[in-house]
Design a protein around this nucleic acid. Structure first.
Lengths: 344, 344
DNA sequence: GTTAGCACTCTTATATAACGAGTGCTAAAT
DNA sequence: ATTTAGCACTCGTTATATAAGAGTGCTAAC
């Protein structure tokens, strides 16, 4: 059941051509290509076989062929030649890190923008996973008698804030003491563990020093237990509208609705494992993604996965280029972030 | 040049009907309405006059009539009967303020969501204008030797943060001193004035107490002079895609591109004065808005304008309902915010 | 195993006609 | 002087027929 060399060649040319033109590829136009040295009749025979094997399909009885999902899959798995980025692309990517930035989020956001500009598809960047960031400092700023705002600063320069309420009877001095103790004991602890550590290590000390222990402990612990929701950044949300693949108004509706509803797409991306992943059409298991492919790559600090950077395009996507770009950006991103935050 | 009562009646019925059905209205179907007690021929004569006066137009030579922009304008200015909100609408709006929320931004964001759900158009909420918020507290958290993060908390519970850099030679104690002085002197000052006040009132005190005055003054002043950019919240960005008015793919492209590019739409909204405003089609002075109307209402704390809440819909919008809703929400919003923040 | 040739299929474009909704105008009715 | 009935006319929509073109599958010859 293996494909012959010639079948592979024909498949490759069909996919390449369709990615370029978005038009079904006919036997005659194929046979005229430089790579193809045999007649259109031969091509027709091979194409019939490829179709029977499920790698290509027709849009109607007498049309040229387009790649099927299985065809794209084979193409991605076996036929992709890594493409070198050109100078201007490299320059664009590097410009992400050009300014002296410290905030992780800004870097990530800028990556999304650049990525969508370079691909003219839609880019989506997840994370960074704030929950794994480590506590740098916690501050509490009272707003009025029974409301205060807790500000959590992480080692990555991320600032998270939460309003919390407590009875007006609480002594302001107590609040200050509590903050001091928390900072002393919890600096360096990942946010996700804060609440647990409070009970395990800090509770007893707090109880000794603080009058309104019960109340304060209750509200601060409640406040800290809210997990920081990871942000999703988009670039080029409307880029897909310009592709000939989405000339159908119904497709546009579905696609835009899915993009707008951030949760769905972020879960779709999140479930991909570390490294680079390509999901083609229905492999995404989502009806709105039928005509789309999603390529994801993770970025890390050291060896710890931090977030995911992804490109959403039509199934007829420039896989080679996008993959090269994603690999390059995610590697660069990981390197810069590791340098910046690894040993703080 | 005034319209006769009968012309006004016909105009009203045409606009109402077109808003409901999105179909051109013919003389015969008009004459069959209960409100209309005369024949289709009479209606035809009146319609010819109304067309000559510019209030209605044809889509082609022998089509029914649709309202022109001038027609909508007349309708909005003279024919609108304020519509009472029904119980469930009022309930939805009130739910915005149901939870005990303190953060202004959350309230505003939720308003946008509810508004788009109730109208099935797109809603846009500007503000609140952070620059007018007053400083509650400023904190500086060092991240490493030459980087720190300045956190600004306002009286409305808004937290703004900015990374800033300074030479490693600066004494940490100096930074702390500076923060204390800033907090003492600048609490209650609107953010927009912070930078000016530093030079006028705080500079001399700082100079006395701080060794690395020049450097620190430079970076903190630079940091504070960045104006806080007001946020824009959207609701129902893709709602417009479901309207029959946007069955044309080109229109969708333009509209979505305009919505996505937040600056444009936010300026469009911002230039409307206090109170309620209706801009119809080309009155918006923007080619992507040709088939859209924009209704804006401002909300305030006390008498101070804080931000704007807006609905973007087709020119064939349910003006009456949307206006009632906007008036209701903006009034409620202003009331709640005034109660919350007026005398802090 | 490869290719030329050809009948066949299906899409696209174009022309034509029939239909219907709606108009504008004229002449009759009120 | 208004209002209305009547009717010819316009234009968009739909249906149908036809022709052209791209491409296929199959057969037979190379």
């Amino acid at each position: 059941m293996l494909l012959t060399d010639r079948q592979v060649l024909i498949l490759q040319v069909i996919v390449d051509d369709f990615i370029r033109t978005a038009q079904p590829v006919g036997s005659r136009s194929l046979s005229k290509k430089d790579e193809i040295s045999f007649s259109s009749a031969t091509v027709r025979n091979e194409m019939a076989d490829l179709e029977e094997l499920g790698f290509i399909e027709k849009t109607h009885t007498s049309s040229g062929r387009i790649p099927s999902e299985k065809g794209y899959r084979y193409y991605v798995d076996h036929l992709l030649l890594p493409q070198k980025l050109n100078r201007s692309e490299i320059q664009s990517v590097r410009s992400i890190f050009a300014e002296q930035i410290y905030e992780l989020e800004k870097i990530v956001q800028k990556s999304a923008k650049i990525l969508s500009e370079l691909t003219s598809y839609t880019s989506i960047v997840l994370g960074p996973a704030v929950n794994n960031n480590k506590l740098k400092r916690i501050q509490i700023v009272p707003l009025n008698q029974d409301t205060a705002i807790a500000i959590i600063v992480t080692d990555t320069g991320h600032v998270e804030n939460r309003v919390f309420h407590f009875p007006a009877s609480v002594d302001p001095g107590d609040v200050e003491k509590m903050v001091n103790i928390l900072n002393e004991r919890l600096a360096g602890v990942p946010l996700i563990n804060l609440n647990g550590r409070i009970y395990k290590e800090v509770a007893s000390i707090l109880r000794q020093h603080i009058k309104s222990y019960d109340v304060l402990m209750g509200s601060i612990s409640e406040t800290l237990s809210i997990p920081a929701s990871d942000k999703v950044f988009f670039g080029g949300k409307t880029n897909m509208l310009n592709l000939p693949d989405f000339n159908d108004i119904e497709k546009i509706r579905n696609l835009m609705a899915m993009i707008e509803q951030e949760d769905g797409i972020s879960q779709l991306i999140r479930r991909n494992p570390k490294g680079l992943n390509v999901k083609i059409g229905r492999e995404n298991d989502n009806s709105a993604m039928e005509d789309c492919s999603l390529i994801t790559a993770t970025y890390s600090i050291g060896s710890e996965k931090l977030g995911t950077i992804a490109v959403l395009g039509p199934t007829r996507m420039e896989y080679s280029r996008v993959i090269s770009l994603l690999e390059f950006i995610s590697a660069d991103l990981s390197k810069v972030l590791t340098d910046l935050y690894q040993n703080n």
